[in-house]
């Protein structure tokens, strides 16, 4: 299986990369980990004339953190580096969990966090927790930078808000307030190398009393063309004391809010049931985790 011919560019600086992106326009594709792109080039759904390899630009990779401000995650940071980062594990547990579930050891070594959001498969692992954590993306071009919430960046099934000449350079993840915790889970047919039937992330903050819900984000993946941010569950739970009855209502609300389709991986009805199960489990786990800190 041969790929079609293309010209290969390996910019070393951000300036060089953005110049190339601007001058080559839609004749070019960016190469990050290649785990989505090369498959599309192999089956000839994509035939770029140029590939711009962005992996040599140092400032596009790595994880940094500043207390009070939060984390900056470079777009070409590998999924394996997220998975193994103690910072991510301590502060943004849901993202740590999702990174560990993506593909296999080898895929995680190759794939980047930026590629996962840019490819924007509805079943993608990391956009769900990133949206739950309130992540913003920074889009850069020769004419400057702009920021937007990740849920606005992903505009549909495999669609994103990149304008011509732009690339995604980093994610900004806000610092979490005290008494908060995030959790991620998914359900698929099997454990390894699975495309999720449904995935979900919860980011919960409680009041000083340790019981009352102060803030909450619940995000579902694979039940709509793009990550679905629940409005019903927060409006039900915020300001109320966390108990079993409320949890049950919240799970039902999430299930009704989901807009799943039937496909080869699961029926819509099954997905809606799974949403309730995941919502109950994750809200409970996050609540238990908050009470431990």
């Amino acid at each position: 299986m041969y790929l079609d011919h293309f010209e290969y560019h390996a910019p070393q600086t951000s300036g060089q990369a953005m110049d190339l992106i601007e001058s080559l326009g839609d004749k070019a594709r960016l190469l990050a980990g290649g785990t989505d792109l090369l498959l599309m080039m192999k089956d000839k759904t994509l035939k770029p004339e140029h590939l711009i390899d962005i992996n040599n630009v140092e400032e596009y990779k790595g994880i940094s953190y500043e207390p009070g401000k939060g984390a900056v995650i470079g777009a070409t940071t590998k999924i394996a580096d997220l998975e193994h980062s103690t910072l991510i594990q301590e502060k943004y547990y849901a993202l740590h969990q999702a990174a560990g579930e993506l593909g296999s050891t080898q895929v995680r070594t190759m794939a980047t966090v930026g590629g996962n959001s840019c490819h924007a498969s509805p079943a993608a692992e990391t956009p769900t927790p990133l949206v739950a954590l309130g992540a913003k993306v920074v889009l850069s071009s020769t004419s400057g930078e702009r920021e937007m919430p990740l849920e606005e960046f992903i505009t549909g099934n495999r669609m994103n808000a990149l304008a011509e000449g732009e690339l995604l350079t980093r994610f900004l993840v806000p610092d979490l307030p005290p008494k908060s915790a995030s959790r991620y889970s998914y359900i698929g047919l099997r454990d390894a190398m699975e495309i999720d039937a449904v995935n979900m992330a919860v980011n919960l903050t409680v009041e000083d009393d340790g019981r009352t819900v102060k803030d909450l984000r619940l995000v579902m993946g694979s039940v709509a063309p793009r990550p679905l941010v629940s409005t019903e569950v927060p409006s039900l739970m915020i300001g109320k004391e966390f108990d079993e009855k409320l949890l049950e209502k919240a799970a039902q609300a999430a299930s009704e809010e989901a807009k799943p389709i039937s496909d080869i991986r699961a029926s819509a009805e099954y997905r809606r049931k799974v949403v309730a199960v995941l919502a109950r489990r994750l809200l409970k786990n996050a609540f238990d985790a908050v009470r431990e800190v």
Binding site: L31, T35, L38, Q106, V107, T109, M110
Partner: peptide, 18 residues
């Protein structure tokens, strides 16, 4: 699977030039 800088990658999805 081969190791690149000690890490396991899939050589069927990797361009040699990279």
């Amino acid at each position: 699977t081969v190791l690149v800088d000690g890490k396991p990658i899939l050589s069927c999805l990797t361009l040699a030039i990279t």
